[in-house]
Structures are given as structure tokens and as C-alpha cells.
Design a protein around this nucleic acid. Sequence first.
DNA 1: CTTGATCCCGTAGTGACTACGGGTTGCAGG
DNA 2: CCTGCAACCCGTAGTCACTACGGGATCAAG
Lengths: 137, 137
Amino acid sequence: MPGRTGLTIGKLAGLSGVNLETIRYYERIGLMPEPGRTEGGHRLYEPAHRQRLAFIRRARELGFGIDGIRALLGLAEPHRRSCEAVRVIVSDHLQDVRTKIADLVRLEAILAGTVERCRDTAMAPSCSVLDLLEAAA
Amino acid sequence: MPGRTGLTIGKLAGLSGVNLETIRYYERIGLMPEPGRTEGGHRLYEPAHRQRLAFIRRARELGFGIDGIRALLGLAEPHRRSCEAVRVIVSDHLQDVRTKIADLVRLEAILAGTVERCRDTAMAPSCSVLDLLEAAA
DNA sequence: CTTGATCCCGTAGTGACTACGGGTTGCAGG
DNA sequence: CCTGCAACCCGTAGTCACTACGGGATCAAG
């Protein structure tokens, strides 16, 4: 009869670096399973929960959306780890990331150009705000 | 007595490439001024509106938030075009963009590595999903 | 047993739209 | 002139991934 194993949600939040409210949110949307409860109704988490939450957090940090994570978790759980399916999800996301980078790099050039011109023409008639107005992005 | 000059909101949407509902949204939040109306209450836009909307669209494409655009518009309008203030807003945003690029590039490396390993180890015991679980982002 | 931290739940707010639905207006063809 | 239908009106709610709030219950230390 050892003490009830289990972390309170606050402890789990502290250990995992995920906001307490966010953990409850993940439970509401079915990303985290419902944990056990104390008699009074407080959640008690076990190591498996902590692992799953860590996985979710990493995946979020890597920019996966909730649906992507759901898919990843679905593939990770059963014995049939279809590596191919995982690869598809990850490389789709990788493509998104690369597209975003390309977009941002173009943006960066435009913005940097604007700032540059702004610095140069200390007393231009109209400031480079007008460039924004004219330039095609 | 020439015809009422003015575009309907639908025409403006078509010309500007901004969704009709988004134009109404911009009006609600005070980004676009209220245009004139027909007797029946339909909006009628003049060239000045079209210009302002084009400015907003470009700025959005460059990743400025609504507040930033509001500030930019505020600086663009009066005679006192304080170029310096504009430069501050734009270069703040530029800094954001650069930070985002750096983040995404790190992400890209991690994801690309995962996909690569996935491709290599055609029959690894556990697929590189576990890498996500282990790797610090 | 009391106190104060922690936890409960449901709801609403964020940014920047987008979608919906039921009713009104505008205009072109007949 | 009148019909029909596209376009417009407005307010509200939904999106994504949380975050914040508030009023009440529970837990653990002293």
C-alpha cells in the first residue's frame, strides 16, 4: 500500500513546462487522456502521461498543429508503427516550414530595403512609407 | 449630375483582392473609415478608400499586425511625416521577422534530419518518431 | 482545525479574419 | 412597370491554440 503514485496537475505543469490550463485544454480536446482522480476530484498523473505530454510539447515546438500531433500519436501507439506514414506527416510539415522560410526571407529583403532607404534619405519628401504603398510584396 | 461616383464593396473587394467580409471587418475595428452610403444603405467607396485599403493589404502581406498598420497609417496621414517613427516601427518588425526566420531554420534542420533518418533506417525498431520524443528542440 | 495554496469547472477573451443566415436593396431584362 | 436574382445589409459565431478569469471545493502543513 504505497502512497498513491501520481503528480498533481500543477506538478506536471512545472515538470513539463506546459501551462496548467493548457494541460486541461489538451484533455478537453482529447489529446491527453483523462487521468485518475483523488477522492476529491483532483487529477493524478502517472509517468505515461508525462511522456505523452513531453511528446506533445516537443511536437508543438517543432510547429506541428494539433491535428498533426494527433496523427503522430495515433501512429506511435499501436504496434504497427508505420514509419512511412510518419515520414509523410513530417515531410509535409517540413515543406510548410520551408515555404514559410522562403516567404519570410523575401519579406526580410523588402523590409530591410525600406529601412535602408529611410536611413539614407534623411529628408526625403515622403518617407519610405510610400514604398510600402507602391511596392508589390 | 454625373452618376454617384463610388464602388460597391463587392467591386472594391474584387479590385483590391481583399475579402468583402474583411473590408467590413476593417471598418468595424476602425482601420477603414466609414464610406458613404446609397439611399438604401449600401456602401460606396471612393478612390481614397481604395488607396488606403491597398496600403493595408501591402502592410499585411509584409506581416505587420493591425496595431502596426494603425500606427503606420497614423504617421502617414498628417503633414508631419515623422520618418524616424516609421523607421522604428518597420525595423522592429524586421527584427521580428529575422527572429522568426532563425527559429524556422533551426526547425527545418531538425525536421529534415528526422526525415532523413527515417528514410535511411528502412526497418529501424521504432521509427524516428521517437527522435521527436527525445530531441530537445 | 485553520489557513493558504492548489485545484475544480465553465466561460470568455486573444488576432485576424471567415462563414452563416435571414432579410433588404439594386439593377437588368422582359 | 415589374419581376427575379445577384449583391448587399447586419450581427453573431466559428476558427486555432491557447490564456485568463472567477467563484467555489479540496488538500496538506502547522
